[in-house]
Design a protein around this nucleic acid. Structure first.
Lengths: 130, 130
DNA sequence: GACGGACATTCCCGCTGTGGGTATATTGCC
DNA sequence: GGCAATATACCCACAGCGGGAATGTCCGTC
């Protein structure tokens, strides 16, 4: 999932929104870090609609302006949930590595990176050199 | 930062690696979820080198095969750290929204949402502790 | 009354990142 | 000899993103 799609689904997970409202909500949710462009937004909404992650719930005319409302589908919600879990895991893995790096003394390069038998335990010993 | 760059930097944050070793380590770190293609890998390494996030530390010949080792720079490490923090925040924001949506009673560590049922609360400020 | 700004959607077009396929070269196994 | 694994590199196509701008209404300011 792209970051754009992630933010759109997150915005919609609290209720139906029209395009422009999504734009503003994403900026707010991300604390200004993510500013969607209108072109990106509407292109992404089209893609999400094709993938049945969002659904258009009809057009409205409010004060002369046409508004198209979108809502998240069950599929979209499941995808968002899975993506959030992946993001959390990614962050954990990276932060564990960074922490393991800054704490102990570090040898020079060219260690062989032969994997320790068990697959990936981020919080414990991440292949710390002897 | 792209996901590819993120994983490469994460792999390199534990020490210098050559391209092919990065490939394997990323698959391991992500528990098989992320499988870099060789084309993507080397193209990304070039980009990261141009941005001074990684640095080539010289070529070696091991058993007849040329190996080019890469190591993460201080700039790259800082970028990785920042990216990990962003990922964690994104995951938190999304999971709080999902929790507020699915559990009407009480979300775990999220902020107290005023009205559970028909939630259209605009979220005045991002309540994510850094 | 003209002008700019906010709202709201849509089209055109170029750039970047990704990935499939493939070429090259060496070592080890069957 | 053929095949897999290791290791890097090139060519080309596709998808997502974003700049620019068009369309149209409403509101506040000059």
């Amino acid at each position: 999932m792209t970051e754009t799609s992630f933010w759109i689904l997150t915005a919609l997970s609290a209720g139906a929104r029209h395009g422009y409202a999504i734009l503003n909500e994403v900026a707010e949710l991300s604390d200004g870090a993510m500013k969607l462009r209108v072109t990106t937004l509407y292109a992404s909404l089209e893609r999400l609609e094709r993938q049945s992650h969002v659904r258009a719930t009809g057009d409205e005319i409010v004060e002369g302006r046409a508004r198209r409302y979108y809502e998240i589908t069950d599929v979209g919600r499941a995808q968002l949930e899975a993506e959030a879990a992946r993001l959390a895991q990614r962050a954990t893995v990276a932060q564990a590595r960074i922490a393991a790096q800054t704490t102990p003394a570090r040898p020079a390069a060219a260690r062989p990176s032969s994997s320790p038998g068990v697959a990936f335990s981020p919080l414990a010993s991440t292949a710390v050199p002897a």
